[in-house]
Amino acid sequence: MRIIVDILILCSIFFAFAGVVGMLRMPDVFCRMQSSTNIATLGVLGVILGGFLFSLVYLHDVAMALKLLMMGVFYIITNPITGHAICRGAYKHGIRPDNEMECDKYGEDLEVEE
């Protein structure tokens, strides 16, 4: 059981590391956001699941385990909304990638509306 907890936490450390590396290396705002969701999902969920199992099996503290689970649920509900809002806000504010994007259907449709 202890091995499962360790593997979960190691996995989440790996994904958080990959997310940070991605954030530093990606070329523009939107790609950096993509990389940051990497940390946000498996990076955080791995730690929460690991903590959940640990407090359930080793600390015998069901209340703490449930609290961790609630944290995970709230995290999952609120996180995509901020990601979406930051991305859309950046786009509407006029931030564009330095390199040409493969295609930009959103920009085309916004121009048509105006």
Binding site: F14, F15, A18, G19, V21, G22, R25, M26, P27, D28, F30, C31, Q34, S35, T37, N38, T41, L42, P97, M101, E102, C103, D104, K105, Y106, G107, D109
Partner: peptide, 22 residues
């Protein structure tokens, strides 16, 4: 998807091809 993006971030060539699709 997580494994895919982690691979991209750690790849020396940084194989990204971003765009907005409808």
């Amino acid at each position: 998807a997580n494994i895919d993006v982690a691979k991209r971030a750690l790849d020396p060539d940084l194989p990204v091809n971003p765009g907005i699709v409808k």
